[in-house]
Amino acid sequence: MDPKTRRNQIQQIVEENGKVEIDQLTEALQVSHMTVRRDLALLEEEQKLIRTHGGAVLPKALVKETPYVNKETKELHAKRSIAKESLSLIGHGATILVDSGTTTFELVRLLKDRDDLTIITNDIKIAAELVDAKPRCIVTGGEVQSKVGALYGAHAYDLLRSIHVDLFILGAHAVHQNVGVTAPTLEKAKMKQLMIEAAEQTWLVCDTSKFNEKSFAHVCELHEVEGIVTDDRLNDEELDLFHQTRLKAPL
């Protein structure tokens, strides 16, 4: 079988099943693992599939920005579990950067009685939650993103370049083992990158619906974060994919 015909057959198998394992392809096509991996790499370059650990899946549309009102109650149980698990990351007297988002919002709600903390955020809803709370709150400033409440722009960039903090709690729109963390816009990706640079450690907090997804603008590779706090819905294969990030999943 010539390479083009073989790759067409691989694409057809993936389209029929939604996903496929390398072992299945080697058996079906009677070729080596190396040949299959090379074919999958070429098909991914042509955006016909997305490689996974041990196989491939159909490509999905890029994850785009979601208005706050549409996501504040989505996956709420998972977000609250993640927030509770994340509390152990925040030491006494810490200065922390908290990214915009609904999962990070749930974490901040649990920190409202901590008078030993300084919280810096680029989210006006998080800042509003801290108005009558005990932590010291600093807002990055900048332009407000319509229907989302995140802050970005030159004023925010200048502040982030001028500070150094203990910990950054990073939110994510999309997380993929090959692409890393991505965001819907270049501006949002730049904010996250500057926050990473300003922090001693970065921990990613996101529910499992964000996994195996891709968005427009690259934020960082997975090895650049200290670890991931997520919910308990990952299967064994997915856990293996992300083990290098010291993923932390609440029960």
Rank of each mutant, 00 (worst) to 15 (best):
M1L: 08
K4S: 14
R7C: 01
Q9N: 15
I10T: 05
Q11G: 13
Q11R: 15
Q11P: 12
E16P: 11
G18C: 05
K19M: 10
E21N: 15
L25M: 11
L25T: 02
T26I: 04
E27W: 07
L29A: 02
Q30Y: 12
V31M: 03
V31Q: 03
S32D: 09
V36E: 03
R37F: 01
E44L: 10
E44V: 10
E44I: 10
E46V: 06
I50N: 13
I50F: 13
I50K: 12
R51M: 11
T52Q: 09
T52M: 09
G55L: 04
A56E: 00
V57I: 13
P59K: 08
L62M: 05
V63A: 07
K64Y: 09
T66Q: 11
P67F: 00
P67N: 06
N70Q: 13
K71Q: 12
K71C: 14
L76G: 00
H77Q: 15
A83M: 00
L89T: 09
G93V: 07
A94P: 08
T95E: 00
F105T: 09
E106L: 03
V108Y: 01
R109E: 15
L110F: 04
K112M: 10
I120F: 02
T121W: 01
K125Q: 11
A128V: 13
P135K: 06
T140P: 02
G141W: 04
V144H: 10
Q145F: 05
K147G: 12
V148C: 03
Y152L: 10
Y152A: 08
Y157L: 05
L159H: 08
H164G: 13
V165D: 00
V165Q: 01
V165R: 04
F168H: 11
F168G: 02
L170I: 04
G171A: 08
A172M: 07
H173D: 14
H173N: 15
A174W: 03
A174R: 02
V179F: 11
T182F: 08
A183P: 10
P184T: 01
K188H: 14
A189M: 03
M191I: 11
K192W: 03
L194E: 08
L194R: 10
I196Y: 09
E197P: 01
E197G: 10
A198E: 06
L204F: 03
V205K: 00
V205Y: 05
S209T: 07
S209E: 08
F211C: 03
E213Y: 12
E213P: 11
K214Q: 15
S215K: 09
S215P: 05
V219N: 02
C220F: 04
C220P: 09
C220H: 02
H223D: 12
V225C: 02
E226Q: 06
T230V: 05
D232K: 10
N235K: 05
F242M: 04
F242V: 08
T245L: 06
L247Q: 07
A249K: 11
P250V: 14
